[in-house]
Design a protein around this nucleic acid. Structure first.
Lengths: 188, 188, 188, 188
DNA sequence: CAATAAGCGAGACGGTACGTCTCGTCTTGCT
DNA sequence: AGCAAGACGAGACGTACCGTCTCGCTTATTG
C-alpha cells in the first residue's frame, strides 16, 4: 500500500502566493508588523491554508529566505583579486543596501526574525557556512592571492558578518577606514 | 529662573517598580512575551504610568539595560595576564550564561529588543565602545603583554561580540577550538 | 440567486449568551454601569464577537428589549371592565415594579438607555403604538365600556406613560389620588 | 469660638468658571460626553476644585440648571388668551428648540442627566410644580378663560411634559394635530 | 463513476494585548 | 485652607491579531 491519500494535493499556487505576499510585506513593513492575517489577505488565501503548512510566521519567513525571496544577490562579495579591498567593499556596501541607520532596515528585520525563530537563525547561519560565497571568496584568496593557508575561513567570515550585524543593531555604520582596520586585523 | 513647575513630581517608587518588574519578566519570559499590561500588573502600576514616561516596551527595556538590571557582571573578561586565553574564556563563557541554544536565551531576547528598538541598540553598542571593559582588557594587553600597539581595539571588540551574536542567533555554540581560531586570527 | 456566502455562520449560542448576559447585568447594575467588557466576560465571549454584530452597548440593550428580556409582562394593563380603575392600577403598579425612588430603578435605566441610543428610544416608543397592550385596553373600553369614540388613543397612552416617566426621573411616586386625577382629566 | 476656619474661602471665580464651562460643554457635546476632566480644562481649574464642591458631574449639571445656564426662557408658555392654542404652540415649539430627532438633542441630554442623577431629576421636576410657569398659565386660564375649576393643574402639566419627553426619547416629533388632540383630551 | 476525503477561500469564534481616555484620589508649591 | 497642575492606580474603551473552528466548494483517488 502506498501512502497516497485521496483528495487534492497541496496547491502550489497558494504556496507561492503566500511566500510572495510574505516577502512583499516583510520588505515593506518589517518583521514585527508582519501578521498572519496580513499575509493571508495579501495572498488572497485563507488563514488555515497558511497554518496548515507553517506553524508560525517565522517559519514562513524562513521559507522565503530559502527561496531567495528576501535577500538580494548583491550579498556576494566582489572578486577583483584583492581580498582585502573586496571584503571592505562588501562590508561598506551592505549598509547602502540593508542597514541604513534610518528606515526600517531590512537587515534589522531579518535579525529580529532570526532572534524570534530558530529556523530563520539556523538558515541564515548555514548560508554563511563552508559552502557560502564568503567562504568561497576567502578560499580563492588562499589559492590565488597568497593568503595564509591556515586562515580560519569560517571564523573570519563570522567575525565580519557579526561585526556588520552589531553595527546594524546599533543603528550606526562602518565607514571605510573602520572596515579596513577590521579586515586588516582578521587577515593579518 | 529654572523651569520648576508646580504639581506632583514623578514617583520614584513607580519608576523603580516598573523597571524591576520589566527586568523580572524579561528574564523569565523573554522580550517577545513581555507586554505592557504584564509589566503594569507585575509592578502594581497603572498602564498610563508606563506610557506617561516611556513610549514603548523597548524603551523600558533600554532603561533597564542602563540601570544594569538585565546584564550580569560576568560580562567582564577575566584578566589572567594571557589576553588570548582570557578572550577565549569570555567567549565560551557567554554561552553558558546567556546563549544556550535551547531555552529562551537571554542574549537572543536582548538582540530582539535591539532589533526592534533603536535606543536598545545604541545602548548596547555604546557599552562596547572605547570605555568598555572589553576595550580596557585589550588596552591592558597592549601595555603589559606586548600585544601589537596598532591593534584596532574597537574593531577587534566588535568582531568578537558580533561573532558571539551570530552564533546566538543561529542557536549554535562556539566551542573552545573555534574561539581560539577566532581570537588567533584577530590578534595575530 | 440569494446572497448565500460560504464560511461559518453567526453563532446563535453566542448571540443568546450575549443578550442574556446583558439582561442579567442590566437588571443588576443598571445601564450606566453596564460595560461591553462586563457583558463579554459574563457571556463567556470575546469582545469582538459583540462588536461584530452590535455597534454599541445601547444596541445590545435594544435587542434585549426586542427579545423581551428586560421588561416583564406585568406592563399589560388589567382588564376588569373599568378602564379608569385599570389605568390607575397600572400606573401605581409600575412604581412597585420598576420605579421605586430608591435603588437603581430599572425604569430609569431604560430611560437612560433610550436617551443615549436612538434604537432603544424608538423601540420603546413603538411598543406603545397602535398595536400596544395599552392601546388595546383603551380600544376595548371604547367598544365595551362606552368610552367616548373620539378618544385619541395614542395621545392618551403617551400622556400616561410620559407622566410615569417624568415621575420616575424625579424620584417621586404617583399615589392613587394623583393617578385618578390624571386618568380623570384624560378620559373626561 | 466661632467656626471661622483659617485659609482662603471658596473662590467665586472658580465656581462660576466651572458652571459656565459645564454649560458650554453640555450644550456642545451632550451629557454623556461631558467629563470632569473636560470641565476642569475648559474652566482652567484643577480637578480637585470641582471634586471639593460637587460629588459628581451630575451635581454640577444640577447646579447649572438651578442657575438657569442650561434651559432658555422660551420654555415659558405664551399667553394669547387661548389656553389650548398656547399649549399646542408650546408643545410644538419645544421640538424646534430642544428635541429635534437628529442632532444631539439638548432635551435628551437633560433626560440622561436626570436619569443618572437624582438631584437633576428632582430639580427638573420641581421646576414643573405648583410654582411653575406652566401651572401659572393653566391657573390663569381657569380664572380668565373659563377653564373648569377642578382641572388638576399639576397632573395636566405633567402629562404634557411627559408626552414631550416620551417623544424626545423616541426621536419623533409631535405635529400640531397630535398636540391638539392631546390638549383636547386633557382640558376637555 | 459515484463515494469519499482532503485542500481551499472565507470568516466567526474565545482570547490577549494594544494604546487611549476618564475616573476619583493624592501630592506639590503657590497665594 | 483653597487653588492650578498634574501624577497616580484602576479599569473600560474599541481595534488588531492570534490560533482554532466551521462552512460550502472544488478536486483527486479509490472502491
Amino acid at each position: 500500500m502506498t501512502d497516497h491519500r485521496q483528495g487534492p494535493v497541496r496547491s502550489e499556487a497558494a504556496r507561492l502566493a503566500i511566500l510572495e505576499a510574505t516577502a512583499r510585506l516583510f520588505m515593506s513593513k518589517g518583521y514585527d508588523h508582519l501578521t498572519m492575517e496580513g499575509i493571508a489577505a495579501e495572498a488572497g488565501v485563507g488563514k488555515q491554508t497558511i497554518y496548515r503548512w507553517w506553524p508560525s510566521k517565522g517559519d514562513v519567513v524562513a521559507d522565503c529566505l530559502l527561496d531567495g525571496l528576501l535577500l538580494p544577490d548583491s550579498l556576494r562579495p566582489p572578486e577583483t583579486g584583492d581580498i582585502r579591498a573586496d571584503l571592505v567593499d562588501w562590508i561598506t556596501g551592505i549598509f547602502h543596501v540593508l542597514a541604513r541607520p534610518d528606515g526600517e532596515g531590512l537587515l534589522r528585520s531579518i535579525i529580529a526574525a532570526a532572534a524570534g525563530n530558530a529556523d530563520v537563525g539556523r538558515r541564515i547561519y548555514s548560508s554563511l557556512g563552508a559552502t557560502s560565497s564568503m567562504a568561497d571568496r576567502i578560499r580563492k584568496a588562499i589559492h590565488e592571492e597568497g593568503l595564509a593557508v591556515d586562515t580560519p575561513i569560517e571564523e573570519v567570515g563570522e567575525a565580519i558578518v557579526g561585526a556588520v550585524i552589531l553595527r546594524a543593531l546599533s543603528r550606526s555604520t562602518i565607514e571605510e577606514a573602520g572596515a579596513r582596520r577590521l579586515v586588516g586585523a582578521l587577515l593579518g
